[in-house]
């Protein structure tokens, strides 16, 4: 006991006031964690500021008109973002049109016991794998496999429904519609995973109650489970939308990077991120500035969508 080195003869205040490296380390450690916690916010501001500062010349020159101009002329220094903004939104919305019904369907399937667990678990794993495949691989698959496969069908649609403006051009190998379909495949896992979670988190009493009243499985699903999981499902759709808006590689590889707005979905188009990926390498001066301006627009778009998603998902968690 004599080997104990803590001097207990000191009074509390004496030992509290005495310099102690352990206490100093503890203080430094605490403030370090505070600094990193603040740092997360700082990084966000830094991102916004670095985009803003490079985009600044373009913002000054084109102002809000940038959003509505369709020109992109490095020779005359005339730039606009309308085709890219339109392409980004349209491709994301078409992707949602495909992915939402498909994703909710799969989520329903995975949340109910249609199949024995032995089959269900690997199926869930497969969905997760789908999420882990890098977007550049989807893009490549699109180029070499999907587009050659789907093109004859699109040509058929064009022949039959060519009088509808949406299908009025002969399907190009690089175009809006196929890009949106690949995007749909890419956002599918997000929708499936969150929708399934919200379906599974519906209070079991509700399910039992519905069964107890003599409802069949599908009546329970369509009238009880899906409505009560709705905010979770909508939240997943918003998150998926955020992802589709910001997706770069698949769009850059498949959409054709045409700087114009075409009513036909079978024509080449462009998105903000694809535009940046394609033009950045040879851009300089005001053109680079204009690209950063576009990036800023994209950032604001995804920010709004993701914040909406968070609000919706939070509401669903509170209900739960």
């Amino acid at each position: 006991m004599t080997s104990q080195t803590i001097a207990k003869s000191e009074t509390l205040i004496e030992s509290s006031q005495k310099f102690n490296p352990v206490r100093l380390v503890d203080q430094i450690f605490y403030w370090l964690t505070v600094a990193t916690a603040l740092g997360v916010g700082f990084i966000l501001l830094w991102i916004a500021w670095s985009l803003l500062s490079i985009a600044f010349p373009a913002i000054v020159k084109f102002n809000i008109g940038f959003l509505f101009s369709t020109s992109w002329n490095p020779v005359n220094d005339a730039f606009g973002a309308l085709p890219q903004i339109a392409g980004t939104i349209i491709s994301a919305i078409i992707a949602l049109l495909f992915a939402v019904p498909l994703g909710v369907g799969v989520a329903v399937f995975l949340s109910e016991n249609f199949l024995p667990t032995k089959v269900q678990t690997p199926l869930g794993l497969l969905v997760e794998l789908l999420a882990a495949v890098p977007s550049v691989v989807y893009g490549m698959w699109g180029i070499f496999v999907f587009v050659p496969f789907i093109l004859p069908f699109l040509q058929g649609i064009h022949r039959v429904f060519g009088w509808i403006p949406l299908f009025s051009t002969p399907p190009s190998t690089r175009q809006m519609f196929t890009t949106a379909m690949v995007l749909a495949i890419m956002i599918l896992p997000t929708i499936i995973a969150i929708s399934r979670d919200s379906l599974l988190s519906v209070a079991p009493e509700l399910r039992q109650g519905a069964y107890g009243l003599g409802a069949t499985r599908w009546e329970t699903l369509t009238r009880v489970l899906v409505p009560s999981a709705l905010s979770g499902i909508i939240g997943s759709v918003m998150l998926a939308l955020g992802r589709a808006l910001g997706e770069t590689m698949a769009a850059a590889m498949l959409i054709g990077n045409a700087n114009r707005i075409n009513i036909s979905l079978f024509a080449p188009a462009s998105t903000i991120s694809a535009m940046i990926a394609n033009q950045f390498g040879e851009a300089s001066g005001l053109q680079k500035s204009a690209l950063f301006y576009q990036a800023l627009i994209l950032m604001v778009m995804t920010l709004i969508v993701n914040m909406l998603a968070e609000v919706i998902v939070n509401r669903f968690q509170q209900v739960e």
């Binding site: 509390l12 205040i13 509290s16 006031q17």
Partner: peptide, 20 residues
């Protein structure tokens, strides 16, 4: 009061209290 020091004296480090 512990040994004539107030445990809640602002000069007292709570970690020192817990060691005793």
């Amino acid at each position: 009061a512990y040994q004539n020091n107030d445990l809640y004296d602002p000069k007292v480090d709570p970690v020192e209290v817990r060691r005793r």
